[in-house]
Design a protein around this nucleic acid. Sequence first.
DNA 1: GTCTATATCCAGATAGAC
DNA 2: GTCTATCTGGATATAGAC
Lengths: 195, 195
Amino acid sequence: MPSLKIKSSRNIPEKILKTAIHLFTNRGYFSTSVSDIVRESGVSTGSIYHHFGDKEGIARALFEMLVLRMENAFDDIERQHDTAQARCRAVIKLLFQITEEEPEVMTYMLFVKHEEFMLGTAPICSSKPFRQMREMVAEGMDSGEVRPMDPMVAAASIFGGALRMISMRLDGILQQPLTEYLDELWSSAWRSVCQ
Amino acid sequence: MPSLKIKSSRNIPEKILKTAIHLFTNRGYFSTSVSDIVRESGVSTGSIYHHFGDKEGIARALFEMLVLRMENAFDDIERQHDTAQARCRAVIKLLFQITEEEPEVMTYMLFVKHEEFMLGTAPICSSKPFRQMREMVAEGMDSGEVRPMDPMVAAASIFGGALRMISMRLDGILQQPLTEYLDELWSSAWRSVCQ
DNA sequence: GTCTATATCCAGATAGAC
DNA sequence: GTCTATCTGGATATAGAC
């Protein structure tokens, strides 16, 4: 499984991105000024604009990078498992792990309203990783693992609980690491759609 | 069931709030200037600051009003139904109705990151309506309607799918009104936690 | 490629007449 | 209570040396 970590080498674009995701997720995009990024990263204004064009460019680069990594991770899951049940469980397990290991990555992917500052961007649930998740469920219905029902309802039922748990964990409402809830949550999720 | 509609009388604070929720949910809080509110509402800068103190005050008034209405609606549900099953279903039905009838209200309640501009505010899932939802599930576990399990996992399992459907509907991914999915979604949700 | 210094603009907020 | 006119700070972005 490829790490989703932002590589922490000393090169400048990566320093900028690391600082940006930290500030964007903790204070919010609009409450973070370029000067804040300059101060926290130690990189100059000029370099930032040289590499990313403008502030929105930083957000865009970050988003594209993280979505791509997520796509690749889901592709791996599809290769390593061949039932809908195993794939969906692996997706949830991965999402839980990322939430624990890199909460800012998960926050930026799921709970930042990108459309507000990245104009013309589709909402996150239209993105490829989300489509992959729905596709896994739809294939499970074709194969008979999942009972016949509306595909959107099925996808929401399988993944909805997990996404709620992630949200609550990131908001500090759950004390235990998500991985400790995995088995119980998965068994509930699967009961909701299995034959 | 009390309407959650913002009363559209001609008094000035209400005009301001109506315009504000529209702009905040469509463009975002930070991309909405007070001048935008002035232009769209026809109310002057001076009046806005007179009534709400500052821009954040508008957001705060809106939030408190909507949370209170939601609390009251949930109180009604608790009075009108006496099983966890009936209560949880009624909550989902209500949320679906509000999403269809007043999408901006639902967007502002659920998908706006209030912490970013209302400093010191707890995340929405710590708010009373969310606690009421979790409480309904916990009571169902005490009474034996819901099988024994972690209460947070149970709540996430029951309401997670519905919240996903709301999110997808507000993002334009679902073509049908949510009310048409209610029966199928509820049957999946309840299967995940029932005995 | 990286930096410092600076220009420009527009946001939030206020003053004070009516 | 409502309005218009105005102030001020800080934000994004650029210029140009090194």
